[in-house]
């Protein structure tokens, strides 16, 4: 656990364009355990950081299938098996009439999976993170951009990494300890 929380070096950038170039530079230098922080999603940053696609879509698909089949099963069981009600002589399992509820349940389950899946993939809620200790962090949700490099990155060497970040345009560099 100790290792997980030990942190590294954090610095600030003044624009999305510089941040992007810096991230590309770090990626090309071979760093993998670095992170960029921005007040809004910067488009193209996933490629610049060399990240894989989000897996969220698959989680939502499973949720949607569960909702749809669960709702159909419920309606079939209650209307055609457990307590048959004759309504205007219609078939007990009248799938046409079951479309609205099945659709709504599919959407509901998918939406839950989208939101809670997103939070889970992001490891949230997690109210504490070492990056919050960076003295200028509070601006990063408003108007500045940050890069942090984890100590556990194989290429991490405090002096050289700091120098590299400064060359890439990083300002107000700090070494953040957990």
């Amino acid at each position: 656990m100790r290792k997980k929380h030990s942190f590294g070096v954090v610095c600030e950038f003044q624009s999305a364009a510089i941040l992007m170039k810096a991230a590309t530079g770090l990626r090309d230098a071979g760093f993998t355990k670095f992170e960029t922080y921005s007040p809004f999603p910067v488009h193209g940053m996933d490629d610049a950081m060399g990240l894989k696609h989000s897996k969220l879509g698959w989680i939502v698909l499973c949720g949607g299938i569960t909702g749809l089949s669960g709702a159909l099963l419920l309606q079939w069981w209650t209307s055609a098996v457990d307590y048959k009600l004759t309504i205007s002589g219609k078939p007990f399992f009248s799938y046409q009439a079951f479309v609205p509820v099945s659709f709504e349940c599919m959407v509901l389950f998918s939406a839950f999976c989208a939101v809670f899946g997103m939070l889970a993939l992001n490891g949230l809620p997690k109210l504490y993170h070492p990056v919050f200790k960076y003295s200028r962090y509070h601006n990063a949700t408003s108007h500045t951009f940050l890069i942090s490099i984890d100590k556990n990155d194989p290429l991490y060497k405090e002096q050289e990494t700091a120098l590299l970040l400064q060359q890439l345009g990083g300002e107000n560099l700090e070494v953040v300890e957990d």
Binding site: A23, E35, T36, Y37, S38, P39, F40, P41, V42, M45, D46, M49, L51, S54, L56, G117, M118, L121, N122, L124, H129, V131, F132, A140, T141
Partner: peptide, 9 residues
């Protein structure tokens, strides 16, 4: 925390 890995998901 506005991390890009957050923004992605």
């Amino acid at each position: 925390r506005g991390a890009n890995r957050h923004w992605q998901n």
